[in-house]
């Protein structure tokens, strides 16, 4: 196999099958991501998004078992030869079920768990912790027991715990599934900031495609274990088959496509406003 040297994460023909199942959950995935990418993954339930995330942080195949072919390379090194904890040093993870990922009994303990394990100096922890909590809007929950948080608060905590570790790569599996609209926006804003300021590489699965549209550089659509579309959000949203793929377009994009199915559509609100003005001008004048 040839590996381009500058890709941080590389999947070569990677297929994976869970134990005791008939079909591959991932089918010949080829993906090459450079340091500093911001990639979104979308697709229907059961498409393989979580499985893909878990192949990158080593949960697949270490914990799940099953069989795979092809390879996953992290910095050129095969992921299946590294332990999950070793991978965790550079790849931070937010799992899809916040409740299943909360380890400790109180919020403070939960935040420092990862930092302690990787030997962050105690003096630095305090500051990182405060910053992570504030960035997901739960600074007021420090001191609470984790069991007493609401669903969305748990999810925010899980994200904060991963952020505090400042990993080189951050993989997030539907991190905003239980968040309110502004909370979701806030999370993506923080991701973008880490991406820009620290060059953090970010991989995120997400059903809110309008967020992906505005924040990601690359959007990948999965379906039945296959990568069916990949490109910039604009390219993907412009694709003729997009509706059949079950991807929700931002409402402004959907509106524009009704007028001009082939043209490059607006993907943000501001672009949408501009678009509507043009529509009114063109037909009204």
């Amino acid at each position: 196999m040839t590996t381009s040297n500058n890709s941080l994460i590389q999947l070569n023909n990677f297929s994976y099958q869970y134990p005791h199942t008939a079909n591959n959950a991932l089918k010949s995935i080829n993906l090459s991501l450079k340091k500093g990418s911001f990639v979104g993954f979308a697709g229907p339930t059961g498409a393989g998004k979580t499985t893909l995330i878990k192949s990158i942080n080593g949960i697949v195949p270490h914990f799940e078992g099953g069989t795979f072919s092809g390879e996953v390379l992290l910095n050129g090194k095969a992921a299946d030869t590294m332990s999950t904890a070793e991978i965790g040093r550079s790849v931070g993870t937010v799992l899809d079920d916040p409740e299943a990922q909360i380890i400790c009994l109180d919020v403070e303990q939960e935040l420092v768990f990862g930092m302690e394990n990787y030997g962050v100096p105690p003096a630095e922890m305090e500051q990182r912790m405060q910053k992570a909590l504030a960035s997901v809007g739960i600074a007021h929950l420090l001191g609470r027991s984790t069991a007493s948080l609401s669903g969305g608060q748990k999810q925010r905590l899980a994200i904060a715990a991963a952020l505090a570790m400042l990993p080189e790569v951050l993989v997030l599996d539907e991190p905003t599934s239980e968040l309110d609209p502004l909370g979701s926006e806030e999370v993506f804003r923080v991701l973008k900031q880490l991406h820009q300021e620290q060059g953090m590489t970010i991989l995120v699965t997400e059903q809110k495609t309008d967020l992906l549209a505005r924040y990601c550089d690359q959007l990948v659509i999965l379906r039945e274990g296959e990568m069916v579309l990949s490109g910039t959000p604009r390219e993907v949203f412009q694709h003729p088959d997009i509706f059949e793929l079950g991807v929700a377009l931002p409402e402004v994009t959907e509106l524009a496509r009704r007028y001009y199915p082939q043209a490059e559509p607006p993907i943000t609100l501001d672009e949408g406003v501009q678009f509507c003005r043009n529509v009114i001008q063109t037909f009204g004048g």
């Binding site: 309110d180 609209p181 502004l182 309008d210 931002p250 409402e251 402004v252 509106l255 609100l269 949408g272 406003v273 509507c276 003005r277 009114i280």
Partner: peptide, 17 residues
């Protein structure tokens, strides 16, 4: 209460026609 209406609702408001 930190809620946002749907995107089209906001769009129509901003258009203000």
């Amino acid at each position: 209460s930190l809620l946002l209406p749907p995107q089209v609702t906001v769009l129509a408001n901003q258009l203000n026609e």
